[in-house]
Simulated assay, not measured.
Amino acid sequence: MPWWSWILIWVALVALSLLLYVFLGIRLFRQFMATLKDLGAAGKKMGHISPLEQAQTRPEAGRPLPGSAVFASPTVMRHDYEASKSSRREQRRLKRVQRKTDRGQPQALGDLDFT
């Protein structure tokens, strides 16, 4: 092989590799732009909900503000915990009694309200 054929081969290899890099760069740029477009659409969709609006809305009645437990006294927090725990237990008991009544099953003595 003559010496100039090696030059042609290397020029072709370099040109093909540059063409591949250009193609990959264009493809990466298009994917990046599509991602930005999707991100912009998601931002517009979720843009109507701002963190300030969420913080300024009043919490539901009887529920403390988020983060208020840090500054509350331990006895108040213990009382709130026990009250909500007993409330959840009572709700579960009432559901269980109603479910057994609906099915015609006998009630457990612990579920009956003797008050």
Rank of each mutant, 00 (worst) to 15 (best):
D102H: 02
Y81G: 13
S5I: 06
W4H: 12
T101A: 07
R58C: 11
S17A: 14
R63W: 10
V70F: 13
K100N: 05
L28D: 11
K44N: 05
Q31S: 15
A15M: 02
K85H: 05
G25N: 08
L20S: 03
A61H: 07
R93M: 03
L36S: 08
K45S: 02
V97I: 15
E53V: 13
V76Y: 02
A55F: 12
K37D: 09
G67A: 11
V22A: 10
G62M: 05
M1R: 13
A83V: 14
H79P: 03
Q54R: 13
S5M: 07
W6I: 06
A72F: 09
L19Y: 08
L19K: 01
H48G: 04
I26Y: 13
V76F: 00
K44F: 12
H48T: 14
R96S: 06
R88T: 04
D111L: 08
P106N: 03
P59R: 11
I49E: 09
G43K: 09
A61I: 15
W4N: 06
L20P: 02
R63M: 14
Q54H: 10
I9R: 02
A108W: 07
A69P: 00
V22W: 06
D111T: 01
L94A: 15
M46K: 13
R99W: 09
R58P: 08
V11P: 09
I7M: 03
M1D: 11
S87R: 12
F23A: 05
Y21V: 13
D111V: 07
L28S: 12
S84E: 12
I9K: 05
R92P: 05
W6A: 02
T75D: 14
P64S: 00
R99F: 04
H79D: 09
D102Y: 01
R30K: 15
D113P: 11
P2I: 00
V14R: 06
S87C: 11
R88D: 11
K95W: 02
L65I: 08
F114P: 15
G25C: 07
L52M: 09
G47M: 10
R27P: 05
R92E: 12
R103W: 00
L13C: 12
L24P: 07
S84M: 11
L112T: 04
F23T: 10
M33D: 07
R58H: 13
P64K: 08
D111C: 04
R96D: 03
R103Y: 05
Q56W: 12
G25P: 06
L112K: 03
S84I: 05
S50F: 10
M46T: 15
A55P: 06
R89Y: 08
